[in-house]
Design a protein around this nucleic acid. Structure first.
Lengths: 293, 293
DNA sequence: AGGACACTAACGGCGCGTCAGAGTCA
DNA sequence: ATGACTCTGACGCGCCGTTAGTGTCC
């Protein structure tokens, strides 16, 4: 099939198709006269690109989706990004409404700093900075701690420390090993799965006693697996190790976490609970102690 | 004040400020050594730009807001654009959710064409094509007629005719007279005002008999004004004349309206009602006949 | 032979970010 | 003299649109 027909089929322009080819998204056969011949596979790819572009997915993301073995999960990250964008746009619209009702720039200036700018950049950079969908997980897990107002000098400093840290991380060398493990085992998780995990953790931390009692059987089963020797052969263990290493090397524990504690009192409270919860757990199940060594 | 301090004050980068100057948004004094000196007025302008940019307002729109005598009304147009963008983003997100749940490109391809692409481009182009806030008014007035599904070949043709017409209009020479009148008298209307006017018209058309009876006094008052000789000296009359001329010359009545009738059965029904309503009105108040001559 | 196709290549546009190189001030 | 600051200017990015010029098929 020649390009004109492809344009009609896929609702794309010539220029767009040329561009996608230049970006390496497809490689149509080129005849002797220089004309491109698109086969069914090319058509399917172009149709996929066409849909995804119209849904606002970037070429970069489309690349990873096309390569991915689990397209739904790969798209899930885009969905999350879109939701963020939507939230931001909603916040912007609210401010515009303020101004339409009463055009007071100085007043809105203060609001915009906090509600539009600061609240979103951390999340955006989190997603950017961490490999694969891990940034998204952090975003979900730390979500509510990142919505607090920055109402003191210390918090502002903490904010900028985190921003700088994330910019730094973004250029950080990730071991290709971690990256490939991520792609292989982490990318099959959708956003909803992550939310479940996160809320389970928070729920467990919130009330360890009850959690232990309610889930005694499953917990003991889980601990048996986690402390077994076979566990160390699983890819999940491997990922955990690699992630731990990455976080230690990157300054996650030295910069990100301490500053998040300052930025968010809510997070500080959560961490204290987490530590207390951990103590109780270790007391009941001493074997958990060396789990994180 | 030198640039560094201005950056801190207004939360802008040097490059951004340079860019705004190059775009002609401000003209700071330049000292002998070539350094720029920003005064309070420059600061205020930059702060305004800073806020508006963070709210997603484009430089182009900011230009017109800065010049405008009624900033709230000027912003109202941006608000409308943002709402459109938000609606589009919402529609996109819904489609992404479909795909995350079940990745079927062919199925989504059809949906995307209608719900994301076609539904919004007409409105976007309407706003673009017509001068000032008039496009926005048309958008509001024709709003619900532009949300219908394109489910036949004829409608699709009508759709493309309208799109082409709007692209053509966009490059159409507008008399500077109309433009300046628009800026002066139409720009003070906010979106909510337009909505009121539009819904009043639709309501009146929907049930002329009752409308005439309910508003007899106001109507007769209005008709007295509209048919008086003094009326022809008012700027509103002038605008109406210029707009009418513009619409006649541009093909509004020859292309846009007929195709809209095809595209939207709802609009067709509305027009028939409008004609009937007009007949009744003319019957009761013969003087209205020459009102639109 | 004419018109509808195809190709390549260069430049534009938004809103700046990112160097590079050179001058200025305290 | 040093460092913090200023200037100008060129290039880059994402995603193509827009000419412009040339070649190919029917």
């Amino acid at each position: 099939m020649l390009i004109k027909d492809v344009c009609n089929e896929c609702k794309l322009t010539k220029k767009a198709i040329e561009y996608y080819e230049k970006q390496g998204l497809l490689h149509p056969e080129i005849s002797e006269n220089g004309y491109r011949k698109y086969n069914n596979k090319d058509l399917a790819v172009l149709k996929e690109i066409s849909v995804l572009r119209k849904l606002g997915v970037s070429i970069f993301e489309i690349k990873s989706i096309l390569k991915s073995s689990n397209k739904s999960a790969a798209l899930s990250k885009c969905k999350f990004l879109m939701e963020l964008k939507l939230q931001k746009a909603t916040a912007q619209l609210i401010s515009i409404e303020h101004l339409v009702n009463y055009y007071d720039i100085d007043k809105e200036f203060e609001i915009v700093q906090d509600s539009v700018d600061k609240l979103f950049t951390i999340k955006e950079k989190l997603i950017q900075a961490f490999p694969g969908t891990y940034g998204m997980y952090l975003c979900i897990h730390f979500g509510k701690f990142l919505n607090e107002k920055i109402d003191s000098k210390e918090k502002e400093d903490a904010y900028y420390n985190i921003i700088n840290f994330l910019d730094y991380i973004d250029n950080f060398e990730i071991s290709t090993e971690l990256e490939s493990y991520m792609e292989k085992y982490f990318s099959i998780m959708k956003k909803t799965d992550m939310e479940d995990i996160s809320s389970n953790i928070i729920h467990a931390v919130d009330d360890v006693q009850n959690f232990i009692e309610d889930n005694r059987e499953r917990l003991e089963e889980y601990l048996k697996i986690r402390t077994s020797e076979e566990w160390k052969a699983t890819p999940v263990y491997k990922i955990q190790q690699l992630l731990l290493e990455f976080q230690k090397n990157s300054g996650y524990y030295d910069i990100f976490i301490p500053n998040l504690k300052i930025l968010s009192p809510l997070y500080y409270a959560y961490i204290r609970k987490l530590e207390a919860a951990n103590e109780i757990l270790v007391e009941k199940y001493p074997q958990t102690k060396k789990m994180y060594d």
